[in-house]
Design a binder for these strands. Structure first.
Lengths: 157, 157
DNA sequence: AATTTGGTTCTTAAAATTAGGAACCAAAAG
DNA sequence: CTTTTGGTTCCTAATTTTAAGAACCAAATT
């Protein structure tokens, strides 16, 4: 019932896990993402995940629900089979990146609040803050175009 | 010796602090950044930081060194004054964003490793991963141009 | 109706992080 | 050469995070 993985894949799971821990995910959640990336079958059941990663039911359940909540994973079902088959919402990657962009724009709003509160006696410093905020907004505005241009580079092939 | 701050500024410090905690900074480090953003004087001494935020010397020392290590802050000195005056490396924001971009490219490399390891029997899934990785690389490549275009929108004014 | 399956939820133990206190230290001042 | 200043470092307590175990539950199976 546990998924067979070679050493390289096991190592990749940990690597992906750590990359996600750095973003604030709990270790188990990161590893589940890693597993779903390298798994031969992209859809795995609760128990396949649990046994392959050697984690408890509770840890599995909590992490899966978290990952579903933030839209990183999904599940499919088959009629006549009670199990849920969890999978990465990979087709979703545009949205995931968009979320990152939204975080950037939030920071730019905070910086604008800072600027309103700041003394005007430090023009150079204030200017740097304003530039930083402005560039963040620029990224946000340019993102759709960037995506389009990327799509064009792909069509040509 | 402690810096006087109104409620709005205190609130902004916490907001900025939390935003940085989400990125994995420890709370004290995040608050120090917040303080340096809103402080009337942009350069503060160890003790001004310590007293304004009501934190211990050890916490202050550790967090300041961390923030210097990762290039978020800096300090200046004045001859005849032993104190260091810590400040945001605000002029540095291009580098800070560049670092984020580097993290993105690292993830794209990991995804390429994943693709090499993956079975070819899941073409659709693999294709999504490849797209994701490809777009990350595209962002990395386009970043300098994006920065330039932003700079142009500024010059015109 | 009893059991199995596919999970969820609650409580708790262990581990990791955070930050305080106190001792410490080097350079400057007295 | 003693004291003060501006920190650093070590140790520890408190808090937070993580994940396990066990009890639980609803739907499906026997």
């Amino acid at each position: 019932m546990s998924i067979e993985l070679n050493d390289k894949k096991r190592a990749l799971i940990e690597k992906i896990g750590i990359a996600h821990e750095e973003k604030g995910f709990q270790p188990v959640a990161g590893r589940i993402l890693g597993l779903l990336y390298v798994s031969p079958r992209p859809e795995l059941t609760f128990d396949e995940i649990r046994e392959t990663l050697n984690i408890s039911k509770s840890a599995t359940s909590t992490a899966l629900n978290l990952l579903m909540h933030i839209g990183h994973i999904d599940y499919i079902t088959f009629s006549g089979d009670r199990k849920r088959y969890f999978k990465l919402k990979m087709s979703n990657w545009r949205e995931l990146i968009q979320n990152e962009i939204e975080r950037v724009i939030k920071m730019s709003h905070v910086l604008h609040e800072v600027l309103e509160e700041r003394t005007k006696d430090t023009p150079e410093f204030n200017c740097s803050i304003e530039e930083f905020a402005s560039f963040m907004q620029f990224i946000h505005k340019e993102f759709p175009g960037l995506l389009q241009r990327w799509e064009q580079t792909r069509e040509q092939k």
